[in-house]
Design a protein around this nucleic acid. Sequence first.
DNA 1: GTATTATTCAACCTCATGGTTGAAAAACGA
DNA 2: TCGTTTTTCAACCATGAGGTTGAATAATAC
Lengths: 119, 119
Amino acid sequence: MVEKRSPEVREQQLDAVFGALADPTRRAMVRRLASGDATVGELAEPFAMSFQAVSKHLRVLELAGLVERSRRAQQRPCKLRVEPLVAASGWLGDYHELWESSFDRLDAHLTKKKGSAHA
Amino acid sequence: MVEKRSPEVREQQLDAVFGALADPTRRAMVRRLASGDATVGELAEPFAMSFQAVSKHLRVLELAGLVERSRRAQQRPCKLRVEPLVAASGWLGDYHELWESSFDRLDAHLTKKKGSAHA
DNA sequence: GTATTATTCAACCTCATGGTTGAAAAACGA
DNA sequence: TCGTTTTTCAACCATGAGGTTGAATAATAC
């Protein structure tokens, strides 16, 4: 179940995941899906945007491995997959020790402590 | 020193940071800068790419707040700023508890433990 | 001043992105 | 079968990203 990934593939995955997260609409969708599965319609509802546009965003998330879809009647429920988030987090994690020891230390710590406002 | 950021501005920062990290060349530059400051020329050296292209990537990193530049003779040394990485990491961190309790749990843990190969 | 080195600016090309609209497809209810 | 609902496909448009080349700028060395 735990795939062995070549460095190139991992790089491509990071391209896809960071790229997917570089859009506020898609981040909002991820946030929404983190609180439970949803249909395309439900995901589209908060946005002033056509279904088709939402569908496209969803495809980006799907290609990045962040969303998995099934079929239920006419609907295609979306479920968040967390592994790509872990991969992205892991990449950033390589720099944890850097920022723990950098001049940004204070700033970093305070940002972390204010973190309750993140969600 | 610790700026108070509005939600919109924070969203824009995340757009910029995730966007900046969505490119393998730029991630490599970040990796390089994590091990010490470098000039544009030094950063360009490993890439089969013109200085101008590297300069553009650098501007993207700069706009995302990931790079700070000074002046030394004709050179413009680049220094990694870590705060945007902290911000991105913080966003992802909001989902930590999600993946700790998800079906991806095993995969996530194993990915984490293999993490020594990340760098 | 002139040349050299390091870097950026400007213009251009190609292709991807994020949005639109309109038509099609898939699964149901009558 | 017919219509309704949910979602996607296809074509299009405008903008931006990532690369190129060639000229300009800035700091230094002679």
